[in-house]
Design a protein around this nucleic acid. Sequence first.
DNA 1: ATGCCGGGTCCTACCCGA
Length: 256
Amino acid sequence: MKIATWNVNSIRQREKHVQRWLERMQPDILVLQEIKCEAASFPALTFHGLGYQSDVVGQKSYNGVAALGRIPFTVAHRSLPGLPADDVQSRYIEVEAGGITVIGIYLPNGNSGGEAGFAYKLAWMDRLADRAAALLEADTPFVITGDFNVAPTDADFAPGALGAGDALVRPESRARFRRLLWLGLTDAIRALHPGGSVYTFWDYQGAAWPRDSGLRIDHALLSPGLAERLLAAAPDREERGADQPSDHVPVLIELA
DNA sequence: ATGCCGGGTCCTACCCGA
């Protein structure tokens, strides 16, 4: 089973990129982040023509996530359980497919909005840990994948690519990421690539891509049973070299 | 740390991302 994630930075700008990538890689499930549109503007017909059903958690201008599947899937949640009822940010989709729960997330960046914006990120991560704990308690096989906006260790960003006060590396963000691991989840990319740079994002500015000044912030965390089935996990760097690319590349994992 | 790039939108100056 192949499960993938991709922050596309506007699906309307990246429709052709996603189409080509689906044809090339044939993931069973692909979750998307930062689609930056409402459901009515999502190019569902394009993907349907490739054999993919879709479900969209849309939002105008900002955020927005979606799931695409070439195997049947059902939607379990369109928002992160436990968040306040008046939270309007579209950042979470949870689907069930092939006997697995696939959670696609666009975790808040935390650098805008001052300390309140950072507190929102941390609260979101606390609710995510609650959700993971509930699924572990129920013995549900699951993967949480998407744009976590956390570089877990200093090996996960190029020297100089981030300042020490950045919300992507602040100790509070990293502590909450570690809590997910301590619950028993496996960081799929690091399990198979324990050393070195395995970046998933390169800024558009400052020639970050040609200098390979990247970040590893898109992740796939596996429940214990799925970790035993892990065959492959890697970002697809090739996509960053495409014409008019997203600043993130897809991350693909394969399970036996 | 930022806004050099590249999305978005009450359409064009300003907000946001990481």
